[in-house]
């Protein structure tokens, strides 16, 4: 770990000032940040610890807009009674992420920003355009089983790992960010960026900005939703693939559908193609699977991750069938 100065601002206003300084990084729950620093994958010159600012820790799931303070703990949000009944996909995405020790520490704001688990990024020595811009990408000629099939580039094929972020992508979500110069709201689809010329750039957040809240528009489709996660072991593992499906049903007919895919893209991935394939159809195993395949029609498989197309399509199909029964 590289040396840094540690500051513990007494207020959000003080945090804005400290966060503006070059080389500053925010510390919330620390579960990702401390690990990245220990591996020299990031080396901020100053740490601004905001983890104790309780004004950002509240959340309210009862109104027309669900509001999650950025510092709400994953474990607390995962057990919110309203979320469990009215938006099971969101609660499940948190319950199925990490372990209880990590969920007790990690915040819903920080969790959205967790960085890829790509082994070539994490090992600290392989060529990696994300870690050392311009150094190349060892994954392109390496083991590609865990790599992405959507929004990849010639410079980076690393998967976005977050369950919560992938589930949020299925809903009308936005992120409230504030800094010394004011507050703005970013549509969730615009928070993460597909890797272009510089894979080190992962979000549209600007220097000094702090995520203060996550906002989700209430929808009746929330009740009829699920987050399905497929892992290499039964618990406490990242998704090989995941599917979030939220539906509005009239009898067996899908009135509207929301679908997002995890473990397959370089950023949280909403699948409008799968949504279109579900909308208006009578839901059964065949139509659900057809929608799953539609979601992967534009996938760009690599040498070893093509299996995720069929696995992912079937995950979408099963999630749709599970969600449709939650009326």
């Amino acid at each position: 770990m590289q040396p840094f100065t540690y500051a513990r601002p007494a207020s959000l206003t003080e945090a804005f000032t400290l966060a503006q300084q070059p080389g500053a990084a925010l510390l919330a729950g620390g579960t990702t940040m401390v690990d990245l620093m220990r591996g020299d994958l990031t080396a901020p010159s100053s740490i601004v610890d905001i983890g104790h600012l309780n004004e950002l820790a509240a959340f309210d799931t009862s109104g027309p807009v669900l509001r999650f303070g950025a510092l709400a703990r994953m474990a607390d949000v995962a057990e919110d009674a309203t979320l469990l009944s009215a938006y099971p996909a969101l609660a499940e995405s948190l319950q199925l992420a990490a372990s209880q020790q990590l969920r007790n520490a990690a915040t819903v704001g920080g969790n959205m920003l967790q960085r890829t688990r790509c082994v070539y990024f994490r090992d600290g020595v392989s060529a990696c355009n994300k870690r050392v811009p311009g150094s190349g990408c060892s994954a392109l000629d390496g083991i590609t089983r865990d790599m992405a099939l959507f929004a990849t580039s010639e410079k980076c094929i690393a998967t976005y790992p977050g369950d919560w972020g992938n589930a949020l992508a299925a809903f009308d979500t936005s992120v409230e960010v504030s800094s010394a110069s004011g507050t703005r709201t970013i549509p969730f689809a615009e928070l993460h960026v597909a890797y272009g010329d510089d894979p080190a750039v992962e979000t549209t957040l600007r220097r000094g900005e702090i995520i203060t809240a996550i906002l989700v528009q209430a929808t009746p489709a929330g009740r009829c939703s699920t987050y399905l996660k497929v892992r290499d072991r039964q618990s406490y593992a990242y998704a090989v693939v995941s599917a979030t499906v939220a539906l509005e049903m009239q009898g067996d007919v899908v009135q509207s559908a929301r679908v997002s895919l995890g473990g397959v893209a370089t950023k949280p991935w909403r699948s409008h193609a799968a949504e279109a394939a579900l909308t208006g159809v009578t839901l059964n195993e065949q139509t659900a699977l057809a929608a799953g395949h539609a979601g992967f029609a534009d996938a760009r498989p690599l040498a070893e991750n093509g299996f995720k197309i069929e696995l992912g399509a079937r995950a979408v199909a099963r999630a749709a069938l599970v969600a449709s029964k939650r009326i």
Binding site: Y6, R8, L27, G30, T31, V34, D35, I47, D49, G51, H52, A75, Q100, Q101, L102, N104, A105
Partner: peptide
């Protein structure tokens, strides 16, 4: 009162 991992908490952040 809540279980957490001591390896991922900075000592400075555990004040108070």
């Amino acid at each position: 009162g809540r279980r957490q991992l001591a390896c991922l908490v900075l000592a400075a952040a555990a004040q108070g």
